[in-house]
Design a protein around this nucleic acid. Sequence first.
DNA 1: ATGTCACTTCATAAGTGA
Length: 258
Amino acid sequence: MKLATFNINGVKARAETLGRWLEQARPDVAVLQEIKSVDEAFPRALIEDRGYHLETHGQKGFNGVAILSTLPLHNVTRGLPGDETDEQARWIEADIGETGLRVCGLYLPNGNPAPGPKYDYKLAWMERLKARATALLAEERPLAFAGDYNVIPQPMDAARPEAWRQDALFLPDSRAAFRRLEALGLYDALRLRRPEPGLYSFWDYQANARGRNDGIRIDHWLLSPQAADLLLDCWIETEPRDWDKPSDHTPVWVDLAA
DNA sequence: ATGTCACTTCATAAGTGA
């Protein structure tokens, strides 16, 4: 079963790209971030006409996540627990058919500028993510936490790490919080299969970053031990970043024996 | 420092967020 995470940077602006990608790549499951749409305005037919079940969690203008699957989606949860006052749409969970796998789709706060209230929100959100992961891990089942983490885990995950030293995506506190997720027993799926440097999932629209391969790896799959045992492969699909009207991110895939 | 893109608004240019 092949699953992808894709920050599409606007589901309405990306309709043609997304339709093409679904037809060519045919993921069994995909989590989307930055849909930038309320649920009522989501182009559902774009997904459903291609044979997918769809659950969305959007808001007006920015943020917003979704999950689509060829198998039915059960027990859907919207919003990251831990703060009832948080109105930002960044989290959705669902069980995938009868596979036993639960997928959590996330769009972690960017956090810039740092320091400041946006960075405080990022770190608090990561603490809530850790709490949610801890609760789910107690179930000792296959879990996949996938999405745009807005964290560069290691210097090798950036073409120019020195350019990110002061950025919320690479500050020590951000990386430490990511490391604490791994310390719970979660596995960075890409690094289980691809140890080499130079693997990126995001290239800025500006300054020809894609052409210069000035990228960073910020879209990740974190797997519970039970899911890591099912991992066949993990890779980054770079081609969609070079299509017309691309997102600034590109899909990251896992293949699970589920 | 700049660049680029999507989306929003007491809209048609300027802001926010990334």
